[in-house]
């Protein structure tokens, strides 16, 4: 239970700030494509018996890099990403079914299995989260400038492609971290919902990042508590809590503005 709580908090601390960039840069679908590739990563790491964390990380990186290079000329970006996201998920599921030798807990990878997190997993989760968070802090100003306007960034000598790669690596790290916690299907939710929930209350990008991390931590802990009491699946319960936070935050904001 403590391990589960620590795992959830570790993920939320990095998912909040990274989720802000996903929201600002309209990368929600991009996050989905990367997260769904994780299932393919699971299948491959089981097939070649390497660590799941590594397999998912590599597959997420490949997916994110590939889709970010496909700049749509005939297809809109969301079409391409839709193809990539669902193709990756379907291929992953098919690939897992070929693994006859091992019994694979597919539900665990799709929706997370935070209660089964061991000490080793926990270490990987915190290391991965810390690495992604350090990347974001290190490039923070440049990432913000590129997100505002690529030309403005170029005039200041910031390379937009390089910063995009930084975000991709951070996203892949978070996907690899999150697959144990909330599962491949709900990773994007943990990125987007806390960030979106706190948007009305933030006046600077930094404030939004901190608040998003806070909202994420709250959702993770509340979700864990609720799932323990009601005996519900933990990952989905965490996301449901985040959704409640989103609704309450927006109602509160509307109430404050109306008053």
């Amino acid at each position: 239970m403590v391990r589960a709580a620590l795992a959830g908090v570790g993920l939320a601390c990095v998912a909040g700030p990274l989720g802000c960039f996903v929201v600002w840069r309209r990368m929600a679908y991009f996050g989905d494509a990367t997260a769904h590739a994780a299932i393919l990563g699971v299948a491959l790491s089981l097939a070649f018996s390497v660590s799941i964390f590594l397999g998912v990380l590599v597959m997420a990186l490949v997916m994110a890099s590939a889709t970010s290079m496909l700049s749509g000329r005939i297809y809109a970006m969301d079409t391409l990403l839709g193809v990539a996201a669902h193709a990756a998920l379907a291929l992953g599921l098919v690939a897992v079914s070929f693994l006859s030798g091992v019994r694979v807990d597919l539900m665990g990878y799709l929706f997370g299995d935070i209660l089964a997190v061991g000490l080793g997993d926990l270490a990987m989760i915190w290391l991965g989260a810390a690495a992604a968070l350090s990347l974001l802090c290190w490039r923070w100003t440049s990432l913000l400038t590129v997100t505002l306007n690529a030309d403005l960034a170029a005039a200041r000598g910031i390379n937009a492609r390089w910063e995009q790669q930084i975000l991709i690596v951070a996203l892949a790290l978070v996907v690899a971290v999150a697959i144990k916690v909330v599962g491949a299907l709900l990773i994007t939710a943990m990125l987007i919902i806390p960030a979106a929930a706190v948007r009305p209350f933030a006046r600077t990008p930094e404030a939004m990042a901190f608040l998003a991390a806070g909202a994420g931590v709250f959702s993770a802990l509340a979700g864990l508590g609720v799932s323990f009491r009601l005996d519900t699946p933990t990952g989905p319960t965490m996301v449901a809590c985040a959704a409640v936070v989103f609704v309450v935050a927006n109602l509160a904001f509307m109430g404050r503005r109306g008053a």
Binding site: W24, T147, L152, R156, R199, T204, A207
Partner: peptide
């Protein structure tokens, strides 16, 4: 170089004072 772009669409998604 100081650059003033033609458009800078700071959407409502990013809070920025």
């Amino acid at each position: 170089i100081g650059y003033v772009p033609q458009r800078l669409s700071i959407g409502q998604t990013m809070p920025m004072n």
